[in-house]
Design a protein around this nucleic acid. Structure first.
Length: 503
DNA sequence: ATGTGC
């Protein structure tokens, strides 16, 4: 058997790109890492493998804990982790969703070509930067009171539609039509709402950005046509999340769960995995609050997209409708969701007594599918794929670094069997932000991108550019190659940056 | 990611 030894953790090769950390000790299931050897080498020295192993201790974990090709260490649970926890007998874990609830990306098409935009890059990037709030702190497209926040939390993009920030078609091209069921605004703290109320429609900082891109390759012309993508076309990619509101919500519930479910916490190998047992009041409350924060993030991306249409109208002196600036799709990267999946038989529990009814092989179970730094990737035919894409599969949008470009994939036919319908979410970081600032200087990075690749970047802070320098990320081509070869997310198109604004 | 702290 081929093995990979990573600093004391041995992975067994199941088949190409599939590695397993066998079940032992208090692990309830094995862990799986979906990666090439080159990608494994990049996570052998940090805590990624330890964290995905720790995840297998969570009650109700089903089949495997899974680390995606772009996985790297995170808070308790790896970024790039998928954990499906039984919604009846298992638990829900805020650390396995992430601090930035519904951080995600959306792509908007246009009918412009690169020729139309060349020569306007600086005007475009300046106008986007001036009109779309970014950076840390407050200031959003909409200034809301408490009533506004509560409506946004409850209704998501439906609120944006009613208030002139969306068209019907936008809702049809977003998961859950931009409105997550089960949102409970009353379970979001006043403090979280206060942080969110002046951040409605704002990019934030860190790896969040808005990028104008050109399509350089269409690998699958049939799916490309269904997605409305062709070579040389201009598209816009928006990457942001739920800002201070989601961060505060995660923090609030981590603290509550640590206090009220200490018994479970004491049995876990890392307190950052703190989880509320399924059926408990806190599990219900967190799920309701998280769903509300998900709606906030969708509104955030919607307002930014709609404002981008207005910026293009001014720069190109045409209506956005005539430029066919339609939403391709919006994907969430940090969420938990109740989904029904076909599962394997209950594996033996470490102490010989799981205390729950054993599962039957092939049984359908309702699971809290936690995807943290991972994307839903449902295949063709799945009922939750929007009508427009049902025959080809769900669009998956994978941003690379600002010097590398991004990919559009479609949910692959193996995703339901291998990954609870999931794939990677990005290139994945190679080094910490602190390390990045020691290696790069923002002004140099910005100048090199412009001189060498004709990519125009404008940011609130030079430090942010250094933290997000292309050299800070893994090779997005390698991540996508693994996803494609596993058949969990298939390559459809590739894009390259034209201009980029960030915090 | 984050009014850059658990």
């Amino acid at each position: 058997m081929t093995t990979f030894d990573a600093n004391g953790i041995t992975l067994e090769r199941v088949r190409e790109h599939v590695w397993e950390i066998p079940q032992e000790g208090d692990m309830r299931v094995p862990a799986r890492v979906l990666a090439s050897e080159a990608l494994l080498e990049e996570i052998q020295d940090d805590k990624t493998l330890e964290q995905i192993t720790n995840t297998t201790h969570l009650p109700g974990i089903t089949n495997y804990a899974i680390c995606m090709p772009d996985g790297h260490q995170g808070y308790g649970f790896p970024v790039g982790g998928v954990g499906a926890l039984d919604a009846e007998n298992g638990c829900i874990s805020p650390g396995a969703v992430g601090y930035d609830i519904n951080c995600g990306v959306r792509m908007m098409r246009t009918n412009l070509t690169y020729d139309d935009v060349q020569g306007h890059e600086e005007e475009l990037v300046d106008s986007l930067f001036a009109n779309i709030p970014s950076g840390l702190g407050g200031g959003g497209i909409v200034e809301g009171g408490v009533d506004t926040i509560d409506e946004i939390l409850a209704r998501g993009v439906d609120w944006a539609l009613e208030n002139g920030h969306a068209v019907e078609d936008d809702l049809r091209h977003c998961e859950d039509e931009g409105m997550r069921e089960g949102a409970a605004p009353e379970k979001v703290s006043q403090k979280a709402k206060d942080r969110g109320k002046n951040q409605i429609g704002s990019l934030g900082s860190g790896n969040h950005f808005l990028e104008v891109q050109r399509v350089t390759d269409v690998f699958d012309s049939g799916v490309g046509e269904a997605y409305g993508l062709e070579e040389d076309q201009i598209v816009v990619l928006i990457h942001c999340g739920s800002r201070g509101l989601g961060h505060q919500t995660c923090n609030d519930y981590l603290r509550k769960i640590e206090q009220q479910h200490k018994g479970l916490l004491d049995r876990l190998p890392d307190r950052e995995l703190a989880a509320a047992p399924a059926g408990s009041q806190l599990a219900e409350d967190y799920y309701g609050a998280m769903n509300a924060a998900i709606n906030f993030a969708w509104v955030n991306r919607q307002l930014i997209m709609h404002r981008t249409r207005q910026v293009f109208e001014r720069v190109f002196d045409r209506s956005w409708e005539s430029m066919e600036m339609d939403l391709l799709y919006d994907v969430a990267h940090n969420i938990a969701k109740k989904e029904t999946h076909t599962v394997s038989a209950e594996p033996r529990s470490a102490d010989g007594a799981s205390g729950v009814e054993p599962r039957i092989d092939g049984e359908e179970r309702e699971l809290y599918v936690h995807r943290k730094g991972a994307t839903r990737a449902f295949p063709a035919g799945h009922p939750e794929v929007p009508d427009a894409y049902r025959d080809v599969g769900q669009p998956v949008i994978i941003p690379g670094s600002m010097g590398a470009g991004s990919y559009v994939l479609r949910g692959g036919e193996n995703s339901m069997d291998l990954t609870f319908g999931s794939t990677a979410h990005g290139a994945g970081r190679l080094m910490s932000r602190t390390q990045a600032k020691n290696e790069f200087w923002g002004g140099d990075v910005q100048q090199d991108l412009e001189d060498q690749q004709a990519i125009y970047v404008k940011a609130q802070s030079g430090a942010t550019i250094a933290e997000e320098a292309p050299g800070v990320y893994k090779d997005v081509d390698e991540v996508v190659r693994v996803s494609d070869e596993l058949g969990i997310g298939d390559k459809v198109a590739r894009t390259f940056p034209v201009c980029n604004i960030k915090g």
